[in-house]
């Protein structure tokens, strides 16, 4: 036990010292526990990832990290609170793709530029999934049918303006098809409706249907990703099918924009080490999530790209305010 602690201590030191030397002024940070704000309810996916991160981060920061859930407004309440927090690094946040979506809907006081990205933790693509009894065996079947019956193919999503609705809408936009988008109160009810054959397809992530796929109840036709999913190597991407589109939901650590550079560096170094922790990786695997670590600047690029993408898409859909 002692040796183990020493080892992790050494790792922290090695990883953190570089950044700490750059930022001598912040050598003190953190001197008290850090609060990680999660904009979604306890027990949910984002919450569980945040807790696993906070737990694993203990080994890489001299202070502990506590998770606080600030729910409401599809994430807008919590994200606003993160944005408005004192920029001293003691209140950091679990950012989600909604950072780049909510501002365009006119229900958020923040924009994507109000946050400094620390590290992206995981990312899940959208996937087109049908019932196992469905006549559509391949993505081509599905698209051919949608072409023949415009507006008749019902795609369930996790709520209007939510990520999976936008994914299906983006597919519609790129392929020139018309779907009938059916919003549900979250991904689970949409999947339930698909299991009951009340709709033709869902656009939620593979992680949210993997159980049913394994049980032979559902079939994934394609993923809206840049490359095939390691969990489903046989499922093609829409890119392979000639549609240049990928839509991901992601989660990552963010801080308010004005946070001192030194604090940001410390958190980035700690996050880089944290995602390598076995416990963190194991949690993601159990939840069928895909580790997609990206360091601050790279993560920032993703945020900027998504921000532009969703802004354009929502303007086209008439949802932007």
């Amino acid at each position: 036990m002692k040796g183990y602690r020493f080892l992790t201590g050494a790792v922290v030191g090695a990883l953190a010292s570089a950044s700490l030397m750059v930022a001598a002024t912040a050598a003190e940070y953190p001197t008290k526990p850090i609060e990680l704000t999660v904009p979604y309810a306890a027990g949910g996916g984002t919450d569980l990832v945040a807790r696993a991160y906070a737990d694993a981060a203990k080994k890489h920061l001299p202070q502990s990290m506590g998770v606080v859930n600030k729910t409401g407004g599809a994430g807008a309440v919590g994200l606003t609170e993160i944005m408005a927090a004192r920029a001293d690094g003691y209140k950091i946040g679990m950012g989600t793709v909604e950072i780049t979506m909510l501002p365009h809907m006119g229900i958020a006081r923040f924009t994507a530029d109000d946050f400094t990205p620390i590290a992206r933790l995981n990312a899940e693509p959208s996937a087109i999934t049908v019932n196992a009894d469905s006549p559509f065996k391949t993505y081509e079947d599905f698209i051919a049918n949608a072409k023949a019956n415009p507006g008749k193919v019902r795609i369930g999503n996790s709520g209007t303006g939510a990520i999976w609705h936008l994914a299906a809408a983006a597919l519609q936009d790129k392929t020139g098809l018309t779907f009938n988008h059916i919003p549900y109160d979250g991904a689970n009810p949409a999947v339930t409706a698909l299991l009951g054959n009340h709709i033709e397809a869902v656009s939620v992530s593979p992680a949210e249907v993997v159980n049913h796929v394994a049980a032979g109840k559902l079939r994934i036709l394609a993923v809206l990703a840049d490359e095939r999913s390691p969990a489903f190597p046989d499922v093609p991407t829409v890119k392979e099918k000639g549609v240049d589109l990928s839509v991901y939901t992601w989660r990552g650590i963010v801080v308010p924009k004005k946070t001192p550079q030194a604090v940001v560096e410390t958190l980035r170094a700690a996050s880089k080490a944290t995602v390598e922790e076995a416990s963190f990786k194991e949690t993601l695997t159990k939840m069928n999530l895909t580790l997609a670590y990206a360091d601050g600047p790279e993560f920032g690029k993703v945020m900027q790209k998504d921000n532009t993408f969703f802004k354009d898409l929502m303007t086209k859909l008439g949802m932007a305010k």
Binding site: G44, G45, V210, N211, A214, A215, K217, K286
Partner: peptide, 13 residues
């Protein structure tokens, strides 16, 4: 979520 985190996938299996 709890079952999933225990490595159990609810469903017929």
């Amino acid at each position: 979520g709890a079952l999933t985190m225990q490595g159990l996938q609810p469903g017929p299996l």
